[in-house]
Simulated scan of single mutants.
Amino acid sequence: MSSENPVLRSAAHHAHELGQARGWSPSTTRCVLDGLTTVLQDRPAGEPVPLSEVRTRPHRHVSRPRLTEVLADLGLLQDDSATAIRSWIDHITRDLAPGFAGPARHWLTVLLDGDNRAQARSPGSLYVYFSCARPFLEQWAIRHDHLREVTRSDITAALEPLRGSQRSNAIKALRSLFRFANKRGLVFANPTTGLKVRDTESDLLPMTFDEIRAVEELVTDPAWRVIVALAAENAARTGAIRHLALDDVDLANRRITLAGRRQRLGDIGHRAIRRWLDHRHATWPHTPNPHLLISPKTALGTTPISQIFVNLRMQQVGCTVQRIRQDRILHEALTAGPGPPAPVTGLRHLPPRRDPLRGRRRASPQR
């Protein structure tokens, strides 16, 4: 890249070196160079680039994580995300009624910063919590002048139409809001006291035929074959699967470390991981990512696949990793019968049931 800006030339050189070391494609490298030109060309030497500008100014084909990595390595990145989230808090609470806007703004600010009573939460948590609570706050503001006037009956009526995860998330958000308001004297009493997150629809139930067929569609992909195998054999949670590192897998001894616990790796998981590793090496031979499962985006860096990456794919087929995991636990409980609970660690002899990874029906015990 020819430029009179020495900072831009240095950044471009570092981008080329990083791209070669990380196995970036030529198009990814070119787009990162375009992004560097956009944010550095007219900037005074040494002035850092705000993270909010990296996320908005370059064209849509630029990989923001790769551009951020180059700037951070050179000390040219200013993380102003906290300032951006504070502006968001002011903006989204501005339209609420005064008696609700003040408590909501104070609640979100403490969630962001934390204090001596609570730990700081991520911006993503704030988005989720407020998106769940906002419809109720707007609804209650029609009949009440202040948050302290909301009663238990108001909350019960608002939650009545909700089911499943939607209801669970709403309860968590409201409990967080009213616990905060009660501790700081913004309400007279906490109307969510004793409100349970668990919904009757979250009870352990066997997977339906449609859910099993959906899983069979997933396992044609090598990465999803690993996810399903670990959820079905080891009852692994999504977070443990996402953060599973290459060093956590011991194929020779058929052992795997999930969430810090060393377990036996079952036959299905063993075959699925071997197949995935062959695919991974053929597709991304130079990836620096230490995690077992990677995607086209994370193969260029070192982060695990995201929760959103998993959720979106599962939503398309109408099933979840948690449902597969619960079905595994339920089946073990029904097969083992009464007695002290044993940890689910990938049983040596899987109970006879439908195996979604083989796509055929085996004898299933009566449930």
Rank of each mutant, 00 (worst) to 15 (best):
H14S: 13
T83H: 12
G318F: 01
P296D: 04
L137N: 05
Q322S: 02
A158M: 08
R167A: 02
V317Q: 08
Q166I: 11
R353V: 01
A170R: 05
G102L: 10
V249T: 02
R86S: 05
S306L: 10
R86Y: 03
A240W: 12
R367I: 12
Q322P: 01
P356M: 05
L51Q: 06
I171W: 01
N116C: 03
G346F: 03
V187C: 05
D90R: 15
R179N: 14
R30H: 12
I227E: 00
H91F: 04
S2Q: 09
D248G: 02
P304Y: 04
D90Q: 15
D327H: 15
S364H: 11
A363E: 12
N182A: 15
L330F: 11
A189D: 08
E4I: 14
A118L: 00
G185Y: 06
A157C: 10
L258D: 06
I268L: 10
P161M: 12
A299I: 02
A157W: 00
A214I: 09
S306M: 07
I294W: 01
V62M: 05
I212C: 09
R134N: 04
H16M: 14
Q315S: 10
A97R: 06
G318E: 04
H243N: 12
G339Q: 10
D90L: 13
T193R: 11
R152A: 13
L174I: 07
P98T: 11
R213I: 07
A120N: 09
P135T: 05
V249D: 00
R367W: 09
P98R: 10
L293N: 06
A11Y: 01
L96S: 06
P50A: 00
D247L: 09
V7P: 06
F100C: 03
N5T: 08
G185W: 06
V321Y: 00
T37I: 03
L36D: 01
A170D: 05
N169L: 15
C31Q: 15
T303D: 14
H291C: 07
S81V: 08
H91Q: 15
V344A: 01
D42M: 07
V70K: 03
T156I: 12
L112G: 02
R275V: 08
A363C: 03
H14C: 09
R167F: 07
R9L: 09
K297S: 13
A229P: 05
I256S: 01
A252D: 11
D80F: 14
R64F: 02
T38L: 06
A157K: 10
I241Q: 07
I171R: 04
P65H: 09
A189H: 13
S165H: 06
Y129Q: 10
R271N: 05
L244M: 10
